[in-house]
């Protein structure tokens, strides 16, 4: 059988667990081009071959049908798919209105350990500088 006829493939991709700020090393198992499992990265300086329950199941959300992949706006008890420009404009309008009527501390921001440092920095700028509140927290309070 030549390489071309090989209808299977298996590889692992070294990465960092996306869930919290600890930063455990993991390998994503890729079978036939699809992410199908997780292995702990042996000898990783942070996690040394261990993972928690979240890390062990971190591959599951990637292709989960429950994953929100598009912007949805709730209208009349139902969710409607909209473009990002429309969705962001809607959020901005609502937030501006809330800040004008109730002050900046009526808003809160939740940042994410799944984002990069830079994205979280920008989130912090948006909360503290653009809106004017210190109400910012993140998903990974350990």
């Amino acid at each position: 059988m030549s390489d071309k006829n090989l209808d299977f493939s298996y590889t692992t991709v070294p990465t960092i667990c996306p869930y919290c700020g600890t930063g455990c090393g993991m390998l994503l198992e890729v079978i036939g081009g699809k992410i199908s499992g997780v292995l702990p990265m042996k000898g990783h300086p942070v996690s040394d071959g261990c993972l928690c329950l979240k890390g062990w199941t971190a591959h599951e959300f990637v292709s989960s049908p429950d994953r929100l992949a598009r912007a949805l706006v709730g209208k009349d008890g139902d969710f409607k798919e909209v473009g990002y420009t429309e969705a962001v404009a809607l959020v901005a309008d609502a937030m501006r209105e809330t800040v004008e009527n109730h002050g900046p501390d009526s808003c809160a921001f939740v940042a994410s350990a799944r984002c990069t440092n830079e994205e979280n920095y920008l989130m912090s700028k948006l909360a503290r500088f653009a809106v004017g509140t210190n109400n910012i927290d993140h998903c990974a309070r350990l």
Binding site: S2, D3, L6, F8, S9, Y10, T11, T12, V13, P14, G25, L27, L39, M41, K42, G43, H44
Partner: peptide
């Protein structure tokens, strides 16, 4: 790769 050894199914 990247200083670690990872399992991989090698082709010819």
């Amino acid at each position: 790769t990247d200083g670690v050894c990872i399992p991989h199914l090698f082709t010819k």
